[in-house]
């Protein structure tokens, strides 16, 4: 079973090299880094009590090599991981990746979280490794289609709803964009947000 899985992953991931023509290597690493940073940030913010109680550096590296089938609830395994996977997928889509490439990078980001972030408190989960990118991609494609349909009504409410449904439109390379510029003059500190819309 494990040998079969390793072979499957080998063949699957080896195809990555054929699937990356639209985004430069630098952009790919930057985008992965953004997701990875967001994963650590959200993990520390949302799991702080669990990390303080059960987390350790020793866990972080010993859990790495011992994935298992988790005991999580339906809500966690199906819904919450699908939402997370959809966020990965939509982020990569917004950066110009094709659907297949977005799926592959959602898969990689999900694996990075399972094997190098969440191991602080728990072992990697086989269910999460599969379900996060796969269900997330399916959900993400639906969300993207709904958002595009709303946006293409060319009305203010359609564009607003389309952006609410898929907020990653705001960081899209091709559609609309938003820029955050930190500001400080010694007395006042803030952020200037500017956006451009089609």
């Amino acid at each position: 079973m494990r040998c079969g899985l390793i072979i499957f992953l080998f063949v699957f991931l080896s195809r990555l090299s054929f699937a990356q023509e639209r985004v430069s290597s630098y952009e790919r690493m930057s985008n992965f880094g953004i997701v990875y940073g967001a994963q650590w940030t959200s993990y520390v913010l949302t799991q702080k009590p669990t990390i303080e109680k059960n987390g350790s550096l020793r866990n972080w590296y010993t859990n790495l090599g011992s994935p298992h089938f988790d005991n999580d609830s339906f809500d966690y395994n199906i819904f919450q991981h699908s939402l997370t996977g959809a966020a990965y997928f939509l982020f990569y889509r917004s950066r110009g990746y094709t659907k297949v490439d977005s799926f592959l990078w959602a898969f990689i980001s999900s694996a990075a979280f399972e094997f190098t972030v969440e191991t602080v408190t728990e072992r990697p989960s086989w269910q999460d490794l599969y379900q996060t990118p796969v269900y997330g991609t399916i959900l993400g494609m639906g969300v993207e289609k709904l958002s595009d349909t709303l946006y293409e009504t060319n009305t203010w409410w359609g564009k607003t709803l389309g952006t609410v449904v898929n907020p990653f439109r705001l960081i899209s390379k091709k559609k609309d964009s938003v820029t955050f510029m930190p500001y400080s003059d010694g007395k006042v500190t803030g952020v200037t947000i500017s956006g451009s819309f089609e």
Binding site: M1, L5, F8, V11, F69, F74, W126, Q127, Y130, V134
Partner: peptide, 25 residues
């Protein structure tokens, strides 16, 4: 083709709901 799949099944047996997930290659 080489593939990986999941099949999330639900079944009702008496008063018990059974949820199983076939994770396969």
């Amino acid at each position: 083709a080489i593939e990986s799949g999941s099949n999330v099944k639900f079944a009702k047996v008496h008063d018990t709901l059974i949820w199983d997930t076939l994770l396969t290659i």
